Amino acid sequence: MLATSFKISKTDACLFVGLAALCVVTRLIPHPPNFVAIGAAALFAGWVIRNRAVALLAPLTGMAIADFFLGAYHWPVMLAVYCTLVLPTALGMLLSRRWSLASFAACSLAGASCHFVVVNFAVWQCSPWYAKTVLGLIECYAAGLPFLKYKLAGDLVWTSVLFGGYALVFAAPKVLAAVHSLAGKLASSPPTGHTAEELQPE
């Protein structure tokens, strides 16, 4: 029973590898702070990968591999970062198959906001930089606002790339079939109007 529940289709396996690789690459290449594909990959994984365990593991695996190369940091903050990936993955699972611009924008905003609140709270709790007071917490969140800007921009851009790319891939055959059908109808329809011979005077 346990083995059956963890069966993975080839499609899910390919998506897992592709999304994890995207997370790794966008973290390792030079980029503005937090402008990476992690949140978007988590949202897309939850939406497109049928196996929920695989969907959750895709962004987490990408994060772990990238952290292996980049190096670890304070573990409570790392744990907070990893935990914030659960929300966009869960939101992706709840999204309708007929997604809209408004729905994925709202999910991106929710994921980025969750990351901002949880991670900065962990930083405030664990670092010596801020006083353990309400004012210190406010200062910590204020210092994180520039990172929130980049995080939200990165989530929106990469979500557009992933969902838009998916739509183009699956819409292309239908568009080509419609164009081919229209071309066939035009080629088989009888000509209208007059021929050159009909227009010549007798």
Rank of each mutant, 00 (worst) to 15 (best):
R98F: 00
V81E: 08
A143G: 01
V81N: 13
V123K: 04
V77T: 09
Q125P: 00
A66N: 06
S96D: 15
P128A: 11
P59I: 05
T133R: 05
V81Y: 01
S103F: 06
H74C: 06
G136W: 10
V77C: 00
L95S: 07
V123F: 03
V77I: 15
L57Q: 06
R52E: 07
S96L: 06
A105Q: 09
T84P: 07
L60S: 07
T89K: 06
A106V: 11
I65Y: 03
V123I: 14
T133K: 04
T61Q: 03
S127T: 15
D67L: 01
W99F: 14
P128H: 09
A142S: 13
P88S: 08
D67R: 01
A102P: 04
A131V: 10
K132A: 13
S108M: 06
A131D: 14
F69I: 08
R50D: 14
M78C: 09
L109C: 12
A64V: 07
K132G: 04
S113E: 02
C140D: 03
I138M: 10
V118H: 06
A80N: 05
F68G: 15
T89A: 14
P76Y: 02
L137V: 03
L135Q: 13
P128E: 10
F116Q: 07
A80F: 03
Y82S: 05
Y130D: 02
S108P: 01
T89H: 07
